[in-house]
Design a protein around this nucleic acid. Structure first.
Lengths: 105, 105
DNA sequence: TCGACAATTCGATAACCGTCTAATTGATTA
DNA sequence: TAATCAATTAGACGGTTATCGAATTGTCGA
């Protein structure tokens, strides 16, 4: 909820604009091997659960939860909780906006 | 010197390939407001000296030197020392390779 | 209702990092 | 040569953060 990006001003496919603070948050989020790995996996397989992640990454559940919250706060992933499980998805719109933002310089 | 990228295999305009470790180093380097600001300035004005930077950023000479070394180690900038002064340039080839690398996921 | 399980939160610890001052190196000029 | 200045290095301090085990919350099946 930290970064809203709810500015659909009626345009058709206007790209999302990333604020400087969100760009920093995303860069910080990506500047960790584990979190980068999570993003890579989500980008490749489109969608996974927490347990799937833990099978690949050598980290405790607590640490994974911490990283996921970090990625969610940065706006990079969406965590959809379904009963006992959590479904993770990469927010590709934010990802593209982030890349477009870096392209601009 | 940490990241060489001296692999011109005779091709014409083959893009540089970023290793995973260099990608991480670049992300870490960018995940700091001051260093990001430095990169933005270098991208805008093409080339500047240390003293010019210090006029804009509220940091000590020692801290700036530390940040510049970090950016240089990541491969993002080139520091050309001319006598007393230092000339800073953004390594646009690396920057583009970095962006292309992120695009791939 | 009662365990088993997924995920989160809490509290602590260790490592990392940005920042500074002070000291140093190296170059230019009086 | 001595003084000055740009930049770097050394060393220290404080804040941030990645990590874990333990406790907690919430959900599902027996």
């Amino acid at each position: 909820m930290a970064h809203s990006n709810a500015n659909s001003t009626g345009g058709e496919n206007d790209a999302i604009n990333i604020s400087a603070s969100q760009r920093l948050a995303i860069l910080k989020a990506l500047a960790d091997p584990r979190r980068m790995e999570i993003i890579e996996r989500l980008a490749a397989t489109a969608c996974t659960g927490c347990s799937d992640m833990r099978e690949c990454l050598p980290i405790s559940a607590a640490t994974l939860s911490h990283h996921l919250k970090e990625l969610e706060t940065a706006g990079l992933i969406h965590i959809e909780r379904e009963g006992k499980f959590a479904r993770l998805t990469l927010r590709r719109d934010i990802w593209q906006a982030f890349l477009a933002d870096l392209q601009k310089l």
